[in-house]
Design a protein around this nucleic acid. Structure first.
Ligand SMILES: [Mn+2]
Ligand SMILES: [Mn+2]
Ligand SMILES: [Zn+2]
Ligand SMILES: [Zn+2]
Lengths: 138, 138
DNA sequence: TCCTTATTGAAAAACATTTTCAATAAGTAT
DNA sequence: ATACTTATTGAAAATGTTTTTCAATAAGGA
């Protein structure tokens, strides 16, 4: 999804299109690895010098609400964000360079049915994430 | 695993058995939901009044090193810990009361092979976590 | 161009975690 | 039991991150 579509989403939800937001959106949208707020700040500031870190936090918050980005959980920390996958997808992360890819096609029906039977839980959702080495790094 | 086994693990690794550590270990070991450091502090302090929050952090750090506890990642936050599963197990969490259960038997071979083929990644590890409602809460 | 108000960045506050440090107590040797 | 060594402790301070406050600004509609 191009950065313009993100900006359109923001506008359609009543948010104003500012230089700060454009810089943040363009940075996150075109990066294929998870970025922390400070990383977004450093990168986006090259596009818009006056940008404040507070605005990065506020913009990430809105982008997450609109489901344009999602938080990435990792052993080293869970403060990073990445452009969200479309539909039912999960993340595959390179443990060396952080390069992220999405995949789909996971079918956990059988598993969750068996677990529901064994545990008495009603299963509503799942998190699945793969770690490995990307083609470049391996 | 009983609390004594945890204490034994600590002792075997050269750590001293103190009142503070006993209080933390007993608290975390017998609780079946994820606890934050402050929650551990509040609960363990009932067993040992002089306990300091700093020591809770330090003890949790050691228990994690020894793989007796593991960090629990959730949408609301990732600062909570729970007694670790044995062998290859994953967590199932009640979204209402936090009650946790472990399950095993997930077989992702087919999936990861297909993804490795499609993406060029060499897959080394996976995180899987289920969310739902426990028998009591549903 | 004017007007309203959402948005901004800076500063301060709040919060979570880590480090520093002198006092204490666990475990071992005597 | 006692003495000794030093890992461990809690309090305080420091650090790092995220949120709140607030007056100035600028986006977008009239
Ligand atoms: Mn899935
Ligand atoms: Mn598994
Ligand atoms: Zn890589
Ligand atoms: Zn429950």
């Amino acid at each position: 999804m191009p950065a313009d579509a993100w900006l359109e989403q923001l506008r359609d939800n009543g948010y104003r299109l500012t230089k700060a937001r454009r810089a943040v959106v363009e940075t996150v949208e075109k990066t294929t690895r998870a970025l922390t707020p400070v990383e977004v700040f450093d990168m986006a500031r090259k596009k818009y010098r006056a940008l404040g870190l507070v605005t990065v936090y506020r913009t990430l918050e809105k982008l997450e609400e609109l489901r344009l980005i999602q938080r990435v959980h990792q052993p080293q920390g869970c403060q990073a964000f990445i452009a969200a996958g479309v539909g039912h997808q999960h993340l595959l992360l390179c443990q060396n360079c952080g390069q992220a890819a999405f995949f789909d096609g996971d079918d956990l029906e059988m598993l969750t049915n068996a677990i529901a039977r064994n545990t008495g839980y009603q299963i509503q959702d799942h998190w699945l994430q793969l770690f490995g080495l990307c083609a470049n790094c391996r």
